[in-house]
Design a protein around this nucleic acid. Structure first.
Lengths: 222, 222
DNA sequence: ACTCAATTATGAGCACTCTCAATAATATTG
DNA sequence: CAATATTATTGAGAGTGCTCATAATTGAGT
């Protein structure tokens, strides 16, 4: 006969335990070898459950990765937002980079996991609970950046929100594209920085009469 | 005995024929059902080659998709750049959208193929020849946009190049993210337009003394 | 015509992710 | 404490993408 009346019964406790073992196994193996070098069977083995059971707790291998990365991602963002509040008054660019630095570090710590995570987040079904949470976390970052931009750059507040979305897109591509794989974190940050700087740069109204002609044709691949 | 001495011998002709059959089979099946609903075996069957032969001509299913999509993508970009040259003098935003419209249409014609293509392009190995070509094509778009921006918006020419890169990132995310799947092409274009507008908006130098406090914390997922 | 090395094609088979009918464990009821 | 109903676990197996030892084809040299 179970002890307590309301709180977790034996069954529920066993389930939470299994969930924990699975998460731990996934976290460890992904960190050790990278998502693509780990099989779901290996995760099941380390968690000491059957493969079928694994898929009862996560409907997909990608979902396992998302669960694991969501934690780190959220921590990195909170870290960045904290740090940013310590560098107020140094211009929007500096502040944005302060937020973004830990995020880039997190996403590139185990590069394959980070980029696969981001991909799955935007590419997969946003209705799925873990992806939903991941997107919410990313939303926190976007909102934080919007605030920074609204405060420091002289923009329409509505534009600040839109610009934040642009910054997110830049981060996404800069941390995801294979071309930047060999770069250091600082190089990636510099790349992002250059793009943010360009989009926040002071600009007057454009002239009415452009004169330089456009040449759309380029020779084919060399 | 073969007829001509130098130009394609029987062997080379047979190879080109096979290559053509494989490309056609892939193009048709991908267009009909979308890349994920087509098996490599089905492509091999329609091309009337063995599965092993298929993998002699394309080292990966993704590579097949890239070959097929590169053609459409290049056409869409050339179309856009052409059209853009007919709307000169209406401001950078209008021109950029003119370039981007056919690109978005192309990428969303068969949505799954378009987004998978873009993903494979940036995520896969850039050294692989077909991806290289795809990236070169994308580079043409980026360069074209840079020119437009340099001509119409009052920016440092160096900034124009950087801003073009940002625009590419925006296009990438806007055509790739699942959230925008249900949107119409025009909605996606409007979304892109808003972001480009915000980043090209006139802006003065920021004030030195910001006053609004930053609140990084947000409540967890509702 | 015949030989033979080099090139190209083949498909059985491997590794992997994910499913689902069968089974076991737990809760509920008489 | 059965007997029954509910819920959780299991692992053989289906379906894929891709590989690689083997076989067929080709063309240059005699």
């Amino acid at each position: 006969m179970p002890a307590s009346g309301n709180p977790p019964g034996r069954r529920e406790r066993a389930k939470q335990d299994k969930r924990g073992r699975i998460m731990n196994a996934a976290r460890e193996l992904f960190a050790e070898r990278g998502v693509s070098a780990v099989t779901t069977q290996q995760i099941a083995d380390r968690a000491d459950v059957a493969i079928g059971t694994l898929y009862l707790y996560a409907s997909t291998k990608a979902e396992l990765l998302i669960m694991v990365q969501n934690e780190k991602f959220a921590a990195a963002i909170d870290d960045g937002l904290q740090t940013a509040s310590t560098v107020v008054g140094q211009g929007a660019l500096k502040e944005v980079i302060a937020v973004v630095r830990p995020v880039v570090a997190c996403l590139r710590e185990q590069v394959e996991n980070g980029r696969t995570y981001l991909h799955e987040l935007v590419f997969g079904d946003p209705a799925e609970p873990n992806r939903r949470e991941g997107l919410t976390i990313a939303g926190r970052l976007e909102d934080g950046i919007a605030l920074l931009i609204a405060r420091c750059a002289s923009t329409d507040p509505a534009d600040a929100v839109t610009l934040a979305r642009v910054v997110i897109a830049v981060i996404h591509v800069s941390t995801t594209a294979t071309i930047y794989l060999p770069s250091s974190d600082e190089d990636v940050l510099a790349n992002i920085s250059a793009q943010v700087q360009a989009m926040l740069a002071p600009r007057q109204l454009p002239p009415s009469h452009p004169s330089i002609p456009l040449n759309p044709q380029r020779k084919r691949i060399p």
